[in-house]
Simulated assay, not measured.
Amino acid sequence: MNRVLITASELAESLQGQDPPRVLDCRARLGDNTAGHRLWEAGHVPGSLHLDLDRDLAAEPGEGGRHPLPSPDAFAATLQRLGISPSVPVVVLDDMGGQLAAARAWWMLSVWAGHPDVRVLDGGLHAWQEEGGELGLGQEPLPEPSQWQPAFDGSTRLDADEVFSGRELKVDARSQERFRGEAEPIDAVAGHIPGAVCRPSAANLTEAGRFKAAEALDAELPHGEAIVAYCGSGVTACHNILAYAIAGRPLPRLYPGSWSEWIRDPSRPVARATDRD
């Protein structure tokens, strides 16, 4: 896979080049679907556009969970509105080390939609500011719309029935406390999918909020012949998929509905307490 991270200094240099990337600010706050846009308006990488977790990167919550994937047509329309095509390099960022929701945007653009050049700003907006990057304020003009019609790859994801009946190793990106069922601040049922292992997405990052080195991630990430990544609602699971890409490992498939969809059917089993059942 092509390189998936970009440093703040590399981004600054590329923005001054002949083929500058389209920068998408994916900052979000769970439980407040207006926070991301407010944060972007208050200060962002100059020229960057806001990509909203709830409006652009997800469909309405419901039977498919809290952040089900939008339809291919809806996401294609979003990409066209932002002037994105395979010839336009893309950089995505947030302020949570990629967890909310740059990794989700990377997965949807690169893995699902097949865009050939999408990178995540390592360290996000904090890294940009630490490098002395200026911040833009308020609105930014939209580029000319594109006509791109992505060929979405359905094999990169699984639905609940496939997860229920499949033999893939299930890797849960939530915290250990939520995985074990000791705490559940968001969803109605605590616990995890039986047979899963816990790899909190935060464990992919250093204390400085950058991704760990490829060698460290390769040593730490769970191994399996086939892996499915999930979390609470299919957002931080993409952070684990990104970590596998950085490590140079085959990419897990995403279960977009994740725990918030799994628990909607009382016939699906729930496990608690242990790291693996």
Rank of each mutant, 00 (worst) to 15 (best):
F152V: 04
G31A: 04
P266C: 04
W107D: 01
E162D: 08
A247I: 02
A237Q: 08
G195E: 01
D19F: 14
V92I: 11
D153S: 15
L30H: 06
E63H: 00
P72W: 13
F75Y: 15
F211Q: 05
M1F: 15
A160G: 05
F152E: 05
E220N: 00
S48H: 10
G123N: 10
F164W: 07
S71W: 04
G248A: 09
L49A: 14
P143V: 05
M96R: 12
T34N: 08
E225L: 09
Q99C: 00
V163C: 04
L49P: 10
W107E: 03
A8F: 14
A243E: 09
M1C: 09
L137Y: 14
D32P: 03
V270D: 03
G181E: 08
R81L: 11
E225W: 06
T236G: 02
A214E: 03
V171H: 04
R276L: 08
V171M: 07
D56E: 13
P141Q: 14
E177F: 08
G64F: 05
A101L: 06
A273H: 13
R119G: 04
T206N: 07
P141T: 14
H67Y: 06
K170M: 04
L205Q: 09
Q176N: 02
S155W: 13
L93C: 11
L5Y: 08
A216V: 11
L15I: 06
Q139T: 15
L251P: 00
P86D: 04
H67K: 02
A105D: 08
G83N: 12
V88M: 10
D117Q: 14
E140P: 01
R22A: 15
L135N: 08
H223A: 11
A102F: 09
A188L: 04
A190C: 03
G234F: 02
D277C: 04
Y244W: 13
G209R: 10
W107S: 00
P61L: 04
E140M: 13
L69W: 15
H67S: 02
W40Y: 15
L109F: 10
A160W: 00
I193R: 04
Q129Y: 10
V90R: 14
R249G: 00
E41I: 14
E168R: 12
G36D: 09
G166Y: 05
R199T: 00
A113D: 01
S175I: 01
H223Y: 01
V189I: 10
D187T: 05
R210N: 12
D275G: 03
G97I: 07
A214L: 02
A213T: 09
W259A: 03
N240Y: 10
E168M: 05
Q129G: 05
D32Y: 03
P61V: 11
P222C: 08
A102E: 08
D159H: 10
D159K: 02
R157V: 13
R81K: 14
A243R: 10
H37R: 14
R29W: 07
E177Y: 11
E140S: 15
D265N: 06
A42M: 11
Q149V: 05
G62D: 06
D19P: 02
A105L: 09
A203R: 11
G98C: 09
E10Q: 13
I6A: 06
D54P: 02
E215S: 07
G65H: 09
R29K: 12
S110I: 02
